[in-house]
Design a protein around this nucleic acid. Structure first.
Lengths: 194, 194
DNA sequence: CTCTAAACGGAATCGGATTCCTCTTCCATT
DNA sequence: AATGGAAGAGGAATCCGATTCCGTTTAGAG
């Protein structure tokens, strides 16, 4: 089965759906949460009813746009992974892509955040990302570049944090990625925590 | 000069303002962004007009609630600071308070996030927090528990990240605080980044 | 070529923030 | 203590944007 609620759209409907999503993504990227459903409809050259047929709520529309972005991140991360020599660099490349995407589409990220409450990958892509992250960590542990007790949950938190930093522009995300990687590095000798 | 736009409120007006803010904070803490202006007015026993007199927009109301929380964080952090023996622990106490506040008032945090776009301290309290953080870091550097190149900007990012993690519940924030502190610790010997 | 379910368009509806205007209350002054 | 007027309160009316509804149009199976 291809996808849960995806029967078989009439070809014109499928084309419309894609076009609406493309348009919405472009608008959100440009103007963020200010974009309204009527804008999307007008810009896409369809009626609001059509927008709602494909995306039952504004939230659904934003979710769909978010899902695409995660797919993008996953693609780039996988590609970078093949290039980078060690796991630490691969992880850096992954986090960097997360940051770049959120920084470039800051307006879109803002919309996603304000509509969904966070920037986490939910759908099927989320699962793939988790799996990918787990492999990366395992590789890092084996290579001795990542602390032994690091878990996917840790990585999730770090990814979320990197997304926040780059989306809001609180500070220099490159620096933050560096700090985060250092936090995930093996502790030499004693842990100073207590 | 006490505060920019704070002339002198009539005593009844001042009382009302406080009461409205108290009520709003309670409601947001309980129900998050679902709370509407009319709810606040009803619960506070005043007309909507009164709410708007004191807080010209919903956003302003949320901002005021957020400002209070930062003051709370600052207070607790300062107190903890006097108790903790070393800078690392003091920093941990600070970050822990940030997390606790965001975790406990998760609904309120969500409202703040979705209305303001981030959870950063803006007003005068923000400045105090920055100063406080700077002192803490300096102390840590002197004690050799914090990396020499750590800056207030770094701390800002970490605080923002901790807030995100605890607010969204992506993962265990205690663990995240630990990772973050490790990231801010002195690098023994070589930096593996390149 | 026909027929029907699927898709469309867009006016109407609904919900919630914000505005506006009238009535009330504080308090400086006499 | 009485009083004038500015500041404050209240809440109906307005505005704006998401969502719903339903009559019209079209793809595409038979």
């Amino acid at each position: 089965m291809p996808s849960p609620s995806a029967r078989k759209l009439r070809t014109d409907a499928a084309r419309n759906r894609d076009h609406v999503l493309d348009t919405a993504t472009a608008l959100f990227t440009e103007r963020g949460e200010a974009v309204q459903m009527a804008d999307v409809a007008r810009e896409a050259g369809v009626g609001v009813g059509t927008v709602y047929r494909h995306f039952p709520t504004r939230r659904a529309l934003v979710e769909a746009a978010a899902e695409r972005r995660f797919a993008d991140i996953l693609d780039h991360a996988r590609a970078a992974c093949r290039t980078e020599p060690d796991a630490r660099r691969a992880l850096a490349a992954f986090l960097t892509r997360v940051a770049e995407v959120h920084e470039q589409g800051r307006a879109l990220s803002g919309a996603i955040e304000s509509v969904l409450g966070d920037t986490e990958p939910r759908g099927p892509v989320g699962a793939e990302l988790t799996e990918f992250g787990a492999e990366l960590l395992e590789r890092g542990r084996v290579e001795g570049l990542i602390r032994d007790d690091a878990t996917v949950a840790d990585l999730y938190m770090v990814v979320g944090a990197v997304a926040t930093v780059s989306r809001t522009g609180i500070g220099d995300w490159r620096r933050f990625v560096e700090l985060s990687l250092d936090g995930l590095s093996p502790r030499e000798r004693s842990r100073l925590t207590d």
